[in-house]
Design a protein around this nucleic acid. Structure first.
Lengths: 127, 127
DNA sequence: CGAAAAATTGACGTTTACGTAAACGTGATG
DNA sequence: CATCACGTTTACGTAAACGTCAATTTTTCG
């Protein structure tokens, strides 16, 4: 069997352009739980995926606690009807939030275009 | 001439579903500067527009300082070529950031759909 | 093997964005 | 005009997300 690729904390930090301190902090807040070899943290592929999700969540403005809950929700995947319905409901709420944000971005991009055009016009007139 | 509609701080707060404290804080950070009548703040249409921009900026994850700079940039609109080019450049950077975020959202929405479908399938099998 | 490089665990410091409480001024209303 | 809701400033408190030492292992490498 192929030996899985592993990473030290500083390698991981460099890869994502963050500090080891941040990574340890995410672990403290239960968003990561890497293996250990004599107290040293060993990160595998799954940890990279999770970290990627964490950083994307942060870019979208979610708190670490929200990110943690969401990841927990998604990779638990229960079997009871009530729980499944709850997950669906939560996803639906998240989706609405994201769609609002998408609209926010579209509006902002449009305004930026308007300003850009006005400025370009001004620049042309400056000849 | 039509008397402009004005608002008290609490009316404004209610309208945007935030606290007066938050509004005063935005003023402290130079994002707002309403008129005064004997120390009392009087908000007009322009202030509403600015506040709307502030809140949208916050939803997009920008800091108040970033929002302040951006608003300043956009409503200064200089006449010197160098400055105009600088504004264009800044806008271009902001646009790239927003487009990244747009991509982040699209990815997340897709993942949510995948999970949703898996759950719905599970629910059907539960009969 | 022995020193330098890398990791670990505290623990206190910092910034952002307000919350909260105190102490006081203002304005509408019966 | 008295009262009472509403507004103001000042100032300290707080949660989130790390930054920054410091003191101690562990690992690695010539």
């Amino acid at each position: 069997m192929a030996k899985e690729i592993t990473y030290s904390i500083s390698q991981l930090a460099k890869h994502f352009d963050i500090t080891p301190r941040a990574i340890r902090f995410y672990e403290d807040r239960k968003l990561l739980s890497p293996e250990r070899h004599n107290s040293h943290r060993i990160y595998k592929e799954g940890d990279l995926v999770r970290l990627k999700l964490i950083l994307r969540g942060k870019r979208l403005g979610f708190s670490l606690e929200e990110i943690r809950k969401t990841m927990e929700l998604y990779d638990t995947e229960p079997n009871e009807k009530t729980q499944l319905l709850f997950v669906l409901d939560t996803i639906s709420i998240h989706r609405q939030e994201l769609e609002t944000r998408q609209q926010d971005i579209r509006e902002t991009l449009n305004e930026m275009k308007t300003v850009s055009n006005r400025i370009k016009k001004k620049l042309k007139e400056l000849d």
